[in-house]
């Protein structure tokens, strides 16, 4: 995989943009920056961004990846948008719980419940 390839699958469904990671491990600084830039572009394009991030493939992530998610959340809030995280496996969820980021993010079991929660 080259640095120019996308690390994400993006599906636009009406007002909701769904993003799924292609990598199982979201660890390397370069990949994290690229993911952050791609998602920021999506946020910038929407006036009231509704973003769903799907962690189905993710087995490992670093604090740098958490930092990027926080920046994404901050950006979305600035634009009056909404962010939902879904399909987080128990080991990864524990990372969110330990860092108390489970209080910051709205996390749902699956896409259906997350989509239904958008107002």
């Amino acid at each position: 995989m080259t640095d120019t390839e996308s690390r994400l699958t993006i599906i636009e469904d009406g007002p909701i943009s769904s993003v799924r990671f292609l990598d199982q491990n979201i660890l390397e600084e370069n990949s994290i920056q690229k993911i952050g830039a791609e998602i920021s572009q999506l946020i910038d394009q929407a006036s009231n961004p509704k973003l769903l991030i799907d962690f189905q493939n993710v087995e490992h992530l670093s604090s740098a990846a958490l930092g990027t998610l926080i920046s994404i959340n901050n950006r979305i809030k600035e634009k009056g948008g909404q962010l939902r995280l879904v399909n987080i496996n128990p080991q990864i969820y524990e990372v969110f719980a330990i860092t108390k980021l489970d209080k910051l993010f709205k996390i749902y079991e699956d896409s259906e419940k997350a989509c239904a929660s958008f107002s």
Partner: peptide
Amino acid sequence: LCKPNGRGIMLMKA
């Protein structure tokens, strides 16, 4: 909580 940095050491310790 909204700051993007500073979680590495606490995760190691956890």
